[in-house]
Design a protein around this nucleic acid. Structure first.
Length: 476
RNA sequence: CGGGGAAUGGCGCAGAUGGCAGCGCGCACGGUUUGGGACCGUGAGGUCCCGGGUUCAAAUCCCGGUUCCCCGACCA
């Protein structure tokens, strides 16, 4: 097993090394595309399943819409086409003949779903429509990186239609909170819920919200988005309903998405020089059992006990693996640490004699995370340990994030802060200010956090009076 | 898309001045090993990124292209 580049030496190389060595993904023979390998995909499946349950719990249902969208559909919403035109993949031929109208490979599905909604929605009784799609989309990205920005990426996109703006806005924030809970409770990822600046809005939205998370190199990753589309798409696609008062009204629509990029966040937030560190809920293997023996006599002593433990842990509902490969224990320890398995159980002749096992936690490597415990009640002990590991990962990530954010009140303070972390600074939401931050700091306003104290300050760029502060930092 | 770097076995790399394609790790088999990345032996594995060109001869030189990495612009 190859060693990986130390995280502190070259964060980007480290990230790519982990993806390769932990068997998450490969490069595809197509620019900007990746092949997700079974171990990586299983992590994604767990994330997807938890999130899907949260969607169902909040009243949403899944459906599927076409991969191809008529070019004219995108053109119906002016800002939308303007925003996406440069990154569209366009199909001009089919069955060996030129198409009458080019089809775009969906970069997102607002338009084709908007078309269907206009067919389906007739009455206020049809509302709200709460649909989610698990699919992949294509955007012709200039600069790609596995999971974080690929030309084709897997995600979910939710699309809802409502009778009132209040209801739509409630949905936008509800889903932002669903994402927030998913990140924290399933992935142990902290982040800041907030409103994107006007400059950073989704093409066609009247308001965009995001969660910004700090990666291990102190850059931000926009982990998800939730958009208030106002009536822009409703007007473009004639999504109308007849209200109680017998007048026709346009719907208010929302859309929200979270991609496999969040798996990139899991790597970049939790990983260390030994490799991945996976939150237990999304780990393909939660517990690995490593048997230890010197000879056949010891092996015949150890293996039956290891096998018994395996069966009891599995029966208790844990995702467990018994590593009976013909490798040395040291090799296996390193191998499973690379793959981020949260808990390791070691069992050797001494343990068999003592009716014990060695229990090692991935979140606290070395001796600190290792303890000798009884074989009795091992399953219960591990079931209790997993939430501890989750909490510890979240705590570590959140402490790192918070300790690298500085409250700033002047341009110079912001300038210094973004060299090695984020600034939280009063900012007037004006594209000109975003522009200056980008040009002079090669950073951007991440978002205006929803949770912030009331107050009045002076914008660090324009000097105007403002009532909001923004997170500012370098980002992916 | 602009600037810079790179591409040789699965991974990491060496192969001035053109002249038999190599090393370490990994992989297969046999043996000895096994409580933090074991060792010995034998062996398999190559379109030297692709396409042209120069040359008796190209991994090496020239032209064109592709992909990856880094810094920008653009974006989830």
């Amino acid at each position: 097993m190859a060693k990986i580049t130390p995280r502190s030496q070259d964060f980007s190389e480290w990230y790519l090394d982990i993806i390769r060595e932990a068997d998450l993904a490969d490069y595809a023979p197509v620019r900007g595309c990746i092949v997700v390998k079974p171990y990586g995909w299983t992590i994604y499946e767990h994330m997807r399943d938890y999130l899907d349950k949260r969607f169902k719990d909040t009243g949403h249902v899944n459906a599927a819409f076409p991969l191809f969208i008529p070019m004219s559909f995108l053109q119906k919403e002016a800002h939308h086409v303007e925003g996406f035109a440069p990154e569209l993949a366009v199909v001009t031929h089919g069955g060996g003949e030129a198409l009458e109208e080019p089809l775009v490979v969906r970069p997102t599905s607002e338009t084709i779903i908007g078309y269907s909604y206009s067919q389906w929605i007739k009455s206020y009784r049809d509302l709200p429509v709460l649909i989610n799609c698990w699919n992949s989309v294509v955007r012709w990205e200039k600069r790609t990186k596995p999971f974080l920005r690929t030309m084709e990426f897997y995600w979910q996109e939710g699309h809802t239609a409502h009778a009132t703006h209040e209801e739509a806005l409630e949905e936008v924030l509800r889903m932002l909170n669903v994402y927030y809970a998913h990140m924290r409770e399933d992935c142990a990822l902290p982040g800041f819920r907030g409103r994107k600046s006007i400059n950073e809005r989704f093409a066609g939205a009247i308001n965009t919200f995001s969660i910004e998370s700090m990666m291990g190199d102190k850059r931000s990753l926009q982990s998800c988005t939730s958009h208030d589309l106002g009536q822009n798409f409703a007007r473009a696609f004639e999504i109308k309903y007849l209200d109680r008062d017998n007048t026709e009204k346009y719907c208010w629509t929302t859309s929200w998405g979270l991609s496999w990029r969040l798996l990139g966040a899991v790597i970049m937030v939790h990983g260390d020089d030994q490799g991945l560190r996976l939150p237990p809920k999304i780990a393909p293997i939660q517990v690995v059992i490593v048997p230890i023996f010197k000879n056949d006599a010891e092996k015949s002593q150890v293996m039956p006990v290891a096998d018994q433990l395996y069966k009891s842990l599995k029966a208790s509902g844990l995702r467990v693996k018994l590593d009976d490969r013909d490798e040395t224990p040291g090799f296996k320890f390193n191998d499973w640490e690379m793959r981020g398995v949260p808990v390791r159980v070691e069992i050797g002749p001494k343990d068999v004699a003592n009716h014990s096992v060695a229990l090692a936690r991935r979140d606290a490597p070395g001796k600190a995370g290792k303890a000798f415990v009884s074989q009795d009640g091992l399953a219960e002990r591990i079931h209790a340990l997993l939430p501890e590991i989750h909490a510890s990962l979240l705590q570590q990530a959140e402490a790192f994030q918070n300790s690298n954010i500085r409250e700033c009140f002047t341009w110079d303070e912001v300038k210094e802060a973004v060299q090695d972390g984020w600034a939280l600074a009063p900012l007037e939401d004006n594209p000109r200010n975003d522009e200056r931050i980008r040009e002079e700091l090669t950073a951007k306003s991440l978002n205006f956090p929803l949770d912030q104290p009331e107050g009045e300050w002076v914008c660090v760029v324009s000097g105007r009076k403002v009532r909001e502060r923004a997170l500012i930092g370098k980002s992916y």
